[in-house]
Design a protein around this nucleic acid. Structure first.
Lengths: 311, 311
DNA sequence: GGTAATTACGCGAATCGTAATAATG
DNA sequence: CATTATTACGATTCGCGTAATTACC
């Protein structure tokens, strides 16, 4: 009869690309995934996969099926949400997000949720943005707070609802004693209202490695400001970045949400200019699920956490 | 995760009204039905059934779920149909219908289908109109040819697509020698163009028992013609009806699709007037499934059978 | 040789049926 | 007392995992 569980496997397969990765995402073995897809294909009487090299590729029939699957899942989510409206907020709510979102937004949001809805048990997982969408798709997470990248779905993807949760401005992090750090009516270029990025064109830059959203953000911002930064150090962890800045090896762009250890003699200097370098946190749910009470309260708590941010 | 099989059980339960009847329709035991509904309710976190006497009644939440279920199933049927378009007509096609539809329409239609599409194996089942819809709903039949009654769903029911396949006129069946049987320019009320029903107001009527579509049809037609028929005999089978007519015990309204044994000395006289008494055969499928190649060919074959009817 | 996908087969869990229980008309 | 629904428990089926096979890079 009607069995959407198998369609769900195909859906994740379309997201991940390989049977092995799909099995991983669904906590299954490649064998199970292969069998489910085969049974679905037999049931529908069409081929869904064709081998290409040692991988598989979805047929046009599979893609046609997926278009319908998106609509079906949306409808299903709406049904679930509508049924739950009015009843008490209970059950399980699973959040996932990138590290800075977990630390700065989810932690306080979850604290609030646990206080306001003791019957709701909330789970949090830190994952990369791309993986967050896979978790949503696989039904293993309900709300994701991510940063849009080339690997994340477009805003109008039929599988998700995405909206901007927070715009996180980037500060210029300099060592204590740096000209920019002398705020107020001081001499150099420093200013309480911030410095222009172009004023820092001559600095040495410390960055997180490539394929990191802040790396791309720096390049884009500097490009808009009319220069290419001289990148001298690549470091993975923010506390290591700020340590290097403290020692005067260079400056960096630091998201305001990211805290710096108190013992590091560094100064945050706001960046002004147009466009100001910001990274936008997106709040994402499976399309249609947003009106579910538990999810709605989760999103509300995240918004409240944004509202209670300092500054 | 997503499991529409349980929703399907609820759907049939809504159609049949009791757990026992649902189990019957799905070829299950009441135990299985009860358990599936319970699991579904637990999964959704809402009550779906409440006991009323020794039966059950669907809650408002259950009805809300069913509204979505109708849309989900339509979408699913559309997906299945779209995927099958273009590929060869194969698989299984299950027809059901009332007896006269089976005899006069389905038999020739199936013959044609078996000739044109040898890969398609076609099954036929004779069922009452109400049961035909249950078969469609339960996924145990694909096309139904029925007569609309008080117990069948309204035309705009979201679960089905219904359209008029054939209008079956009713003839007046009289014994040989009856005044109406003297066609041409004869004496009484007889006429090649038929007689008015009101001309037969004084006759004795033989009918199939109450709760039969032809019984209701007769009463409605006579009411429109301005009289109430004097019903003298109730008989179940048409051949027995015509036998009584042949013996001169009375007349009857006989659907043109129903054949009479050749040895019975009776005459069919067309009925004219406005509105002419006709019964309308409906061709019904699950909503959204109509564009599936096998179903489309089935419907086409039925239409062809209608076109090849005598007269 | 390492990786990806698909089989073949044995095991475990989900689901169904039987039987007993409760409640209604 | 017959009918309807639910629960408990044993049985069957379906689906997953392990392992072997094939194909590809």
């Amino acid at each position: 009869m009607i069995d959407l569980r198998r369609v769900q496997v195909l859906r994740v397969l379309a997201d991940r690309g390989t049977v092995t990765a799909t099995a991983e995402a669904l906590h299954l073995t490649p064998s199970a995934v292969s069998q489910q897809i085969r049974l679905l294909a037999d049931d529908l009487g069409v081929e869904l996969l064709e081998r290409t090299g040692r991988n598989v590729r979805l047929t046009v029939a599979a893609h046609a099926l997926l278009r319908h699957a998106d609509a079906l899942h949306e409808q299903w989510e709406r049904a679930r949400a509508e049924l739950a409206v009015g009843s008490r907020v209970t059950g399980t709510l699973r959040l996932c997000g990138v590290s800075s979102a977990v630390a700065a937004l989810m932690a306080p949001a979850v604290a609030r949720l646990r206080r306001d809805f003791p019957e709701l048990d909330v789970h949090v997982a830190e994952e990369e943005s791309e993986d967050c969408f896979t978790l949503l798709l696989a039904g293993q997470a309900d709300i994701a707070v991510v940063l849009p990248t080339a690997g994340t779905p477009p805003v109008d993807d039929a599988r998700f609802d995405q909206h901007v949760l927070h715009e996180d401005p980037q500060d210029l992090l300099v060592w204590r004693g740096h000209p920019f750090a002398e705020g107020g009516g001081g001499g150099g270029g420093g200013d309480v209202d911030g410095v222009r990025l172009s004023d820092a064109a001559a600095e040495n830059w410390i960055v997180k490695p490539r394929h990191n959203d802040t790396y791309d953000l720096l390049l884009a911002a500097c490009s808009a400001a009319g220069f290419t930064p001289r990148v001298t150090h690549h470091v993975k962890e923010w506390f290591a970045v700020s340590a290097l800045v403290a020692e005067g090896f260079g400056v960096c762009l630091l998201p305001r949400l990211v805290p710096v250890p108190g013992e590091h003699p560094v100064v945050r200097v706001p960046v002004r200019g147009n466009p100001r370098p910001v990274r936008k946190f997106l709040c994402c749910v499976r399309r249609g699920s947003g009106s579910h009470p538990a999810l709605a309260e989760g999103v509300r708590a995240l918004r409240a956490a944004v509202g209670r941010l300092p500054g």
